[in-house]
């Protein structure tokens, strides 16, 4: 019974989109649709974009990502000084990008809302009815999220670096005093590009976890727990260097944020790109698990 309905809905959608009637028998399971997989994806993308665009709050969240990231980075830069006669190991680029620590939480909120909002209102059933290839829904959500986060992350990172350069130079952390000033040189570019990728990967990790957890509040707790708890645990494990080392190398935030460093790379427990790779592996694993669970579970 349900299947017939599904076919019916599908057909209606197809007619509406292409103006051509399709026989009900050649629905999603049939071979005739296989060639149209990417057409389906573009529909899915359009659907996800429309949903996100028309939900109140999206604009607020995107603004919050930029504003909070830049504001926290600027405040940290303003509080960073190096008194005369003290040995300072300050990395100006890293200080400027401190706002990423809070910006990632807002990116996570955006990602969680994209999927758990549908679960809490029951809309997910309609989504999957219209788009029976569930992995495609997830892929479309991931793609829309990636595109949006790319735009705001570039703005946030550029704003943070500009503010940091201005403020830190004003605080006397200049090249003349031996500091690696924020500029368009190799390590800063790596940190800037890496920060954008970091926020992207946090978004994808959050989307994956939220798809697995489904409930919005629990998903938010789980995502922020994975992002914020390991750094705290690492702090407490000072007397267990092996465990501490493990936490610092293989948890998303600790490893991923290695990309912010431009100086003292030798002392890092994981190199910048390898750290980002660890975060990418987490995101990939979360999305894969989400895709599998979407297939196995009831809507």
């Amino acid at each position: 019974m349900t299947q017939t309905m599904t076919h019916g809905r599908n057909q209606t959608m197809t007619i509406a989109r292409h103006g051509l009637p399709r026989p009900a028998g050649t629905a999603w399971a049939g071979t005739a649709w296989a060639g149209h997989a990417w057409t389906g994806l573009s529909d899915a993308l359009r659907a996800e974009w429309t949903k996100l665009r028309t939900v109140p709050g999206t604009a607020w969240i995107l603004t919050a990502i930029c504003v909070l990231t830049v504001a926290v980075g600027a405040a940290t830069a303003a509080a960073t000084r190096c008194g005369a006669g003290t040995r300072c190991t300050i990395d100006p680029t890293k200080v400027s990008l401190t706002g990423i620590e809070v910006g990632q939480a807002v990116v996570a909120v955006l990602a969680v809302l994209m999927i758990s909002g549908e679960y809490s209102t029951g809309m997910i059933a309609a989504t999957f009815t219209a788009m029976p290839r569930r992995w495609m829904v997830l892929a479309a959500k991931a793609a829309v999220l990636t595109g949006l986060v790319l735009v705001v992350a570039v703005v946030a990172v550029a704003g943070s670096l500009a503010a940091g350069r201005l403020i830190l130079t004003g605080n006397g952390l200049t090249a003349a005093h031996g500091f690696a000033v924020v500029s368009l040189h190799g390590p800063t570019v790596r940190a800037a590009v890496g920060s954008v990728l970091y926020l992207e990967l946090v978004g994808l990790l959050s989307l994956g976890i939220a798809t697995i957890v489904r409930d919005s509040a629990a998903a938010t707790g789980a995502v922020l727990g994975i992002l914020y708890v390991p750094p705290v645990i690492a702090l407490f494990l000072g007397s267990e260097p092996a465990w501490q080392h493990w936490v610092e190398r293989y948890t998303p935030t600790n490893a991923g944020l290695a990309i912010l460093n431009t100086t003292g790379l030798r002392d890092l427990v994981i190199s910048p790109w390898a750290g980002l790779g660890v975060l990418a592996a987490w995101a990939a694993a979360a999305l894969l698990a989400a895709g599998v669970l979407l297939r196995l579970r009831d809507a």
Partner: peptide, 17 residues
């Protein structure tokens, strides 16, 4: 709930970190 949970966690745990 999403915004509330995120706001409280960020307000309590992030300053600590």
């Amino acid at each position: 709930s999403v915004v509330a949970v995120a706001a409280v966690i960020v307000a309590i745990v992030l300053p600590y970190i």
